[in-house]
């Protein structure tokens, strides 16, 4: 009995050590994030101080005039990421459903392997392919789209004339290829966790395959799927070199998806080398802005997800 007690006490010790270790691990993330936010903001301060709110609400970026307005870059970042999501999310979830629910078992592995292989391609390769191969040949295709969709009111504004293949749409397209493996592989994992019993129950009730997926798999996977999409979005907004090469690099806000623009990380990468003083502070300010936007979007997404989970599965 004495020995048992000793064992128990040792267990308690290990337990509290384990607790502290995990708290520390979690804390490190928070501390790192906080430290990054503080030091970056401090370094960006000369630019924020000079521009005030204009830093976020104006779009004139003229380092040679000491004027820094990031609105066009925020717009470009969000626009390219939105295009990427619109294309990549249906495709990725389609791939995930196909590989887990539809495809014959012997096909699943090779398909999964091929899609995952996309994630291994370095982003600079996507960028160079985009700028050297895709963009030069895409101009004609974009202008055909413009001819077809241009006269439609509303849509016509989005599909304007393309003066080159290096534009926001190309950036979004390349981003969509880059985030597809991320979203689809996470989505696959999430969908796989749907209990066999739930699926069998749906089939037993006479559901078709689509009804089973809609009724059993998707509600179960909802939270995880949004999480997968958020990771993809984070990747799309932070992607630097591929976007820098194809987006066209001009501080331009236009509804036309085929016009050149610029994105926050691309501007930093393109202009860092020559930047000094306030200019450098302004570029760091862009990084802070990107950081803040990413956090805002993630928080918003998490709130939406937890609400929808409460709705479909009840409070936990």
């Amino acid at each position: 009995m004495n020995e048992n007690l000793n064992f128990h006490r040792r267990g308690e010790l290990a337990d509290s050590a384990f607790r502290y270790a995990t708290v520390a691990a979690g804390g490190i993330v928070l501390i790192t994030l906080g430290a990054i936010a503080i030091t970056m903001t401090k370094r960006a301060w000369p630019a924020f101080d000079k521009m005030g709110l204009d830093f976020f609400t104006t779009s004139r970026w003229a380092p040679n005039d000491n004027v820094f307005g990031a609105k066009a870059f925020i717009f470009g970042t969000l626009m390219a990421a939105a295009i990427a999501l619109v294309i990549a999310v249906p495709v990725s979830i389609g791939i995930a459903l196909f590989t887990t629910q539809v495809a014959p078992t012997k096909w699943r592995r090779p398909i999964v392997y091929l899609v995952d292989l996309l994630a291994v391609v370095p982003s600079v390769v996507f960028g160079l392919w985009g700028v050297l191969v895709f963009a030069p040949s895409a101009t004609g295709f974009y202008n055909t789209l413009h001819d077809v969709l241009g006269p439609i009111p509303g849509l016509g504004n989005l599909f304007g004339e393309a003066s080159s293949g290096r534009n926001i749409f190309t950036a979004g397209l390349i981003l969509s290829v880059m985030i597809t493996p991320i979203i689809s592989s996470l989505a696959r994992e999430v969908i796989d966790t749907c209990p066999e019993s739930d699926r069998d129950a749906a089939f037993a009730l006479g559901a078709t395959r689509w009804e089973m997926i809609r009724g059993s798999v998707l509600p179960h996977a909802k939270g995880g799927l949004v999480g997968a999409v958020m990771l993809g979005l984070g990747r799309a907004m932070g992607e630097t070199i591929a976007v820098a090469l194809v987006i066209g690099s001009s501080a331009n806000i236009s509804a036309n998806l085929f016009s050149s623009g610029d994105a926050l990380p691309a501007v930093i990468a393109n202009q860092w080398g020559e930047a000094e003083g306030n200019y450098r502070a302004a570029l760091i300010g862009l990084a802070v802005t990107l950081f803040a936007i990413t956090i805002l979007i993630n928080v918003a997404a998490n709130t939406i997800v937890s609400r929808s989970i409460v709705k479909t599965q009840g409070a936990r």
Binding site: P63, N64, S249, E274
Partner: peptide, 12 residues
């Protein structure tokens, strides 16, 4: 300057 405000219809 090392970066100037080029028109949006120039190619970068």
């Amino acid at each position: 300057g090392s970066t100037v405000e080029w028109a949006a219809d120039t190619q970068a």
